[in-house]
């Protein structure tokens, strides 16, 4: 049974008197514990799909089923409860969090809002979450602006897993990190996936990263699915014109002695 099923999703935006389809009749599914990547050129609709799935915006047409619920029909308490199972990690956590808030505060919020732990239990939960993402417990008292970018991205992941989600949407979540930190964060995400069967909707324009971490990939072009399939098969030998163009343009590192 799939975890998320998206059917015939369409989202239009007005543009110079006309209307353009940012997302045009898109259908896909994600299984529990699976990573589905969305790739494609700038403006192809990746972030719009992420926002639709997170219900930050409403579609013009289509269905979203999440954990066997008609997700678009949910509201109030049942939507809130289901939202705990669907989390996100932003590209720039500094913009997403209050930079003066402490790490403990950022992690306390979801535990409190979703009633996951009592007030007395929460400090222990926060320490456990920090340990889970490989951060020292002492970091809890630091402000968000007082930790490094890589540490901040770990805090964002800790916050996302605080509510025990089954799906995390990652929109360019590792793109701003340097290569060494990015590798560590990707390993962390894959460990969490193995241990807790979390599924990811993974958006990135780095095809090397997509190929290394995703099970399947969808290549988007102008709001439509151009091609989809096994991530390595598609990236190693794309069949669509946009897939070929993206691959041809990707920089390659030629090392004679790796």
């Amino acid at each position: 049974m799939s975890l998320l099923t998206v059917s015939n999703l369409t989202k239009r935006y007005p543009r110079g008197g006309k209307s353009i389809a940012a997302v045009d009749d898109v259908s896909f599914h994600i299984d529990p514990g699976e990573t589905l990547a969305l790739a494609g050129p700038s403006g192809s609709g990746k972030s719009t799909i992420a926002r639709l799935v997170l219900r930050l915006i409403e579609p013009d047409a289509g269905r979203i089923e999440f954990e066997d619920n008609d997700f678009l029909a949910l509201s109030g308490a049942s939507l809130r409860a289901r939202r705990a199972r669907l989390q996100t990690v932003f590209q720039d956590p500094l913009a997403a969090f209050n930079p003066r808030a402490t790490v403990a505060r950022v992690l306390d919020d979801p535990l409190r809002i979703h009633g996951i732990a009592s007030r007395s239990e929460r400090p222990r939960r926060i320490a456990a979450l920090l340990e889970r993402v490989g951060l020292a417990a002492e970091l809890a008292s630091r402000a968000i602006h007082e930790i490094s970018g890589g540490q901040r991205q770990r805090v964002a992941i800790a916050r996302a897993i605080a509510t025990k989600p089954s799906l995390i949407v990652l929109d360019e979540a590792v793109s701003a990190l340097d290569v060494s930190v990015r590798g560590q964060i990707l390993h962390l995400l894959l460990d969490l996936q193995r241990q807790e069967r979390i599924a990811y909707l993974f958006i990135s324009h780095d095809l090397g990263v997509v190929r290394a971490v995703a099970h399947r990939v969808i290549l988007l072009d102008a709001g439509r699915i151009a091609e989809s399939g096994d991530a390595r098969a598609v990236i190693d030998a794309p069949r669509s014109a946009i897939g070929k163009a993206l691959l041809a343009a990707a920089p390659r590192l030629h090392r004679t002695r790796p």
């Binding site: 290569v179 060494s180 990707l186 090397g208 190693d236 691959l247 390659r252």
Partner: peptide, 8 residues
């Protein structure tokens, strides 16, 4: 740094 690069 070179080893951490995730190429195609």
């Amino acid at each position: 740094l070179l080893d951490a690069h995730i190429g195609l």
